[in-house]
Design a protein around this nucleic acid. Structure first.
Lengths: 112, 112
DNA sequence: TTTTCATAATCGCTTAAACGAATATAAGTA
DNA sequence: TACTTATATTCGTTTAAGCGATTATGAAAA
């Protein structure tokens, strides 16, 4: 399948949009996604892998954690417009960003 | 479901992307789509209706024909970027536009 | 080396959606 | 009124993908 079509299929699911929105802020590990979106580990992992297979994300293993970050090249830059002009105007995605902030604060205290 | 998500699901299919690309040129009836993309009538109709339900298209009935055209509002303007910056760089979609031109020329001679 | 922790993969199930083929509808024409 | 034409809908089948629950893997810590 074409890269563009892969990307669009990857974007046609709300959980994956929410994940993408978070990763536009910063690189995150699976547990950050789980905690922020309040979804199960299996669900977070599955959707992250789906996004990675669509070449929207890349991953990096460090110790027992896997960190995911954006890997969006010029051929699909419409996604920037999608996130900044459309997603972020919606309450759900704004709330997710706030929850991410809160989680990272709590996490810093607890862990590394 | 949210309007944005509906739009993205509608965009996650190659036939519908090809249809959208054509309609960025001008309003077309179902038979224009069939001829240009060389797809069955049922397939053209189904996908047009899917796009209409996602509120990306509107239709207008005139005599026995149904004309479809874009209905893309500000809340999903990333689609402009998708079509102009991404789709139209791909050979398939360029060829479709050429086929549309050819078909409309033939059609004018034959019909109205 | 056992245990724990983070992540990925598998299983069984359910639903959405794609397809071709065939049929229905509704308007125009003979 | 028949007949044709344009479009929509239905049917039966197939495939993709979502989910929760569970198990596997692999690195870190005890």
């Amino acid at each position: 399948m074409g890269k563009l079509l892969d990307a669009l299929k990857a974007l046609s699911d709300e959980t994956r949009l929410r994940i993408l929105n978070l990763l536009y802020e910063k690189e995150l590990c699976v547990c950050d996604i789980m905690e922020t979106l309040q979804i199960s580990q299996a669900k977070a992992s599955r959707h992250l892998i789906y996004l990675k297979n669509a070449e929207l994300l890349k991953d990096r293993k460090h110790a027992q954690w896997v960190y995911y970050s954006l890997a969006i090249d010029e051929r699909i830059k419409f996604i920037d417009s999608l996130v900044y002009d459309n997603l972020r105007g919606l309450e759900l995605y704004q709330n997710d960003l706030q929850n991410l902030k809160d989680w990272l604060k709590r996490k810093t205290i607890k862990c590394d």
